[in-house]
């Protein structure tokens, strides 16, 4: 039991660090949006904000769960809210990082809202849905890297690939529980890659 609690605490620490990095990306994207007026940066900022909100929500919810009598209801709500927030964030990433050579399309707000709402309906397969959207995000990041060959695009690609790996591991936790912490570690490494990108991009020329 002690070992399990230790793993959960370590997991929460990883989650807090990842959440802080997600907030830093949010701040940077908002700043870039204000300077340039590029709508996609605002969408990117929203995506990372949703992601960090989900992470901090999970940390707070898990603490609540640990500090009080274990409640399946609270735990269920936290798990579903966390999974749904991540899927919403990944859908926003798919939209905001879509390849630039395509014809610009007007957002179909109703369509997107329905898509976001639909995530609430599929509760048992949240990880699989997250993997599906992250695969698209990763493919877009690959295309972007192949086009620009920039080291900044490389860090983002590595970050998203590690996030994808973390979700694939998480989906396997049922058969191999040991993957749980590895999954959280992969997620943390993914966010650290984004942090390196922020640091490098913010350096003076």
């Amino acid at each position: 039991m002690q070992a399990e609690l230790g793993i959960i605490r370590l997991d929460l620490l990883f989650e807090i660090i990842s959440g802080i990095i997600a907030l830093m990306v949010t701040y940077y994207a908002t700043k870039a949006y204000r300077l340039t007026g590029q709508k996609r940066l605002s969408d990117l900022s929203t995506g990372f904000l949703v992601l960090s909100a989900g992470m901090f929500g999970r940390v707070i919810g898990t603490w609540y769960f640990l500090a009080r009598e274990p409640s399946d209801v609270v735990f269920g709500i936290v798990t579903v809210a966390y999974g749904v927030s991540r899927i919403m964030a990944y859908i926003i990433f798919v939209i905001s990082t879509r390849p630039i050579h395509r014809e610009p399309q007007e957002y179909d707000n109703a369509g997107i809202s329905m898509l976001l709402m639909a995530t609430f309906l599929v509760d048992p397969a949240l990880e699989v849905i997250a993997i599906f959207f992250l695969v698209i995000v990763v493919l877009q990041a690959i295309l972007n890297y192949m086009t620009t060959r920039s080291k900044f695009a490389w860090y983002v690609l590595v970050g998203f690939v590690l996030l994808l790996v973390s979700h694939i591991m998480m989906a396997q936790v049922g058969v191999a529980p040991g993957l749980y912490l590895l999954s959280q570690g992969a997620q943390l490494l993914g966010f650290l890659s984004l942090l390196v990108m922020l640091y490098q991009a913010g350096r003076d020329i």
């Binding site: 940077y28 870039a32 590029q38 990082t97 920039s150 900044f152 860090y155 983002v156 990108m197 922020l198």
Partner: peptide, 18 residues
């Protein structure tokens, strides 16, 4: 201009053209 270059690198990292 320095700040703009930073934002340009950041946007480029995510494939967003400004």
């Amino acid at each position: 201009l320095r700040e703009f270059v930073r934002m340009e690198r950041f946007s480029e990292a995510f494939g967003i053209e400004i």
